[in-house]
Design a protein around this nucleic acid. Structure first.
Length: 206
DNA sequence: CCACGGATTGGCT
DNA sequence: GCCAATCCGTGGA
């Protein structure tokens, strides 16, 4: 897929992102997450994500109100929220809802679509990878950021711009979406707010 | 196959 | 000072 072909497709707009976080999360499944680095395209199909529902969700970064770290989550739908964790990893989220709601969706797994050589270089420091490594390229939130070169500088990027955006694609039908509890959290562990495409081999875990 | 622990910075109590 | 929306390697069954 070339940049010219990408630009012919429909980019999701502000309207898409300012709706309910769970609605947006489920509709983002199957869409194409794209990073354009000076004309080079990296892209992956979104196959797994988690909704973080602001002040009603103890596991959300915004549960206790606004801080320096989470301020992007309060700026309204359509921005990228990137945070640093465990002293070494970045994870990226799509901010949803209206201004001051503090809600976002953690992108947990992608199926690689374009730019796989660069992703492999970013992840494994080599242009060739084994089948096993291919399946391990973007099946986790920090792996995605590593493969796509997403760091603090991308925190707050507007998804309606040209650097990072998401392309329209057919909606995945309800019966092909699984909802489960979220991964790696210690609070609100029973809320079924992780959504993924059933049977997709690129999800981070069953 | 599974369970466990170390890495390593920075956010917030 | 505690511990995190993770990942990877190790060691045992």
């Amino acid at each position: 897929m070339k940049l010219e072909q990408i630009s012919l497709q429909n980019k999701l707009t502000g309207k898409f992102y300012t709706r309910n976080v769970h609605t947006v999360a489920k509709e983002l499944l199957g869409k194409i997450f794209v990073r354009n680095i000076a004309g080079e395209i990296l892209a992956g199909k979104i196959v797994e994500l988690e909704a973080y529902d602001g002040k009603i969700d103890e596991a959300a970064h915004t549960f206790r109100g606004k801080t320096k770290r989470n301020e992007v989550m309060y700026k309204g739908g359509g921005l990228l929220y990137v945070y640093f964790t465990y002293g070494m990893h970045f994870c990226c989220n799509v901010v949803t809802g209206k201004k001051d709601e503090g809600k976002a969706i953690l992108i947990r797994a992608l199926e690689p679509v374009e730019g796989i050589i660069t992703m492999s270089s970013n992840r494994f420091d080599k242009k060739e990878c084994t089948y096993k490594e291919l399946m391990n390229l973007t099946n986790g939130p920090a792996k995605i950021c590593e493969a796509f070169g997403i760091k603090r500088e991308q925190n707050g990027v507007d998804l309606c711009g040209d650097e990072i955006f998401i392309l329209e694609a057919p909606k995945i039908i309800k019966s092909s979406i699984t909802a489960s509890t979220r991964i790696g959290i210690k609070k609100s562990v029973n809320l079924p707010w992780r959504y993924y495409i059933k049977n997709n081999p690129f999800i981070s875990r069953k």
